[in-house]
Simulated assay, not measured.
Amino acid sequence: MATRAFAATTIPGFAIVAGIAFFALYAPILTLVAYSFNDSNAISQWGGFSLRWYEAAWANTAVQEATLRSLTIACSASAIATVCATMAALGTTRRGAFRGQTFIYVMINQPLMVPEIVTAVALLIVFASVKVATGYNGLMYLIIAHAAFCIPFAYLPIRARLEGMDLSLETAAADLYANPWQTFRHVTLPLMGPGIIAGAMLAFVISLDDVVITEFVKSAGQDTLPTYMLGQLRRAITPEVNAISSALLALTVLLLTAFFLLTRKRD
Rank of each mutant, 00 (worst) to 15 (best):
C75A: 15
C75T: 15
S76Q: 10
S76N: 08
A79L: 15
I80V: 12
I80D: 00
A81W: 06
A81K: 06
A81D: 07
A81M: 04
T82S: 10
T82H: 03
T82W: 04
V83W: 02
V83A: 09
V83I: 12
V83T: 04
V83H: 03
C84K: 01
C84I: 14
C84H: 00
A85T: 10
M87N: 02
M87S: 03
M87T: 07
A88G: 15
A88W: 08
A89N: 03
A89T: 01
G91Y: 00
G91I: 01
T92R: 06
T93C: 02
R94I: 11
R94M: 13
R95A: 09
R95S: 09
G96E: 11
F98I: 11
R99D: 12
R99E: 13
R99K: 14
Q101Y: 09
Q101S: 12
T102G: 14
T102D: 12
T102V: 11
F103S: 14
F103D: 10
F103M: 15
F103R: 13
I104V: 14
Y105R: 13
Y105S: 12
V106M: 13
V106K: 08
M107R: 04
M107S: 08
M107G: 00
M107L: 15
I108W: 07
N109R: 11
Q110F: 14
P111M: 04
P111R: 03
L112Y: 01
L112V: 09
P115N: 02
P115E: 03
I117Y: 05
V118N: 02
A122D: 00
A122C: 04
L123C: 00
L123T: 01
F127C: 06
A128D: 11
A128I: 07
S129G: 15
V130P: 06
V130W: 09
V130D: 07
K131N: 12
K131I: 14
K131E: 13
V132Y: 13
V132I: 13
A133T: 07
A133V: 05
T134H: 09
G135K: 11
G135C: 12
G135S: 11
Y136S: 15
Y136D: 15
N137V: 12
G138K: 10
L139C: 09
M140I: 15
M140F: 15
M140R: 12
Y141R: 08
Y141A: 09
L142Y: 02
L142V: 05
I143W: 08
I143Q: 11
I144K: 03
I144D: 03
A145L: 02
A145E: 01
A145K: 01
A145S: 08
H146N: 11
A147G: 07
A148T: 04
A148V: 03
F149T: 00
F149C: 01
F149V: 02
C150K: 04
C150Q: 06
I151Y: 00
I151R: 01
P152D: 04
P152K: 02
P152R: 02
A154L: 02
A154D: 04
Y155H: 05
Y155C: 00
L156V: 13
R159M: 10
R159Y: 06
A160F: 02
A160N: 12
A160C: 03
A160M: 05
A160P: 05
L162W: 09
L162S: 07
L162D: 07
E163W: 01
E163R: 08
G164H: 04
G164D: 00
M165T: 09
L167A: 14
L167N: 13
L167K: 13
L167M: 13
S168V: 15
S168N: 14
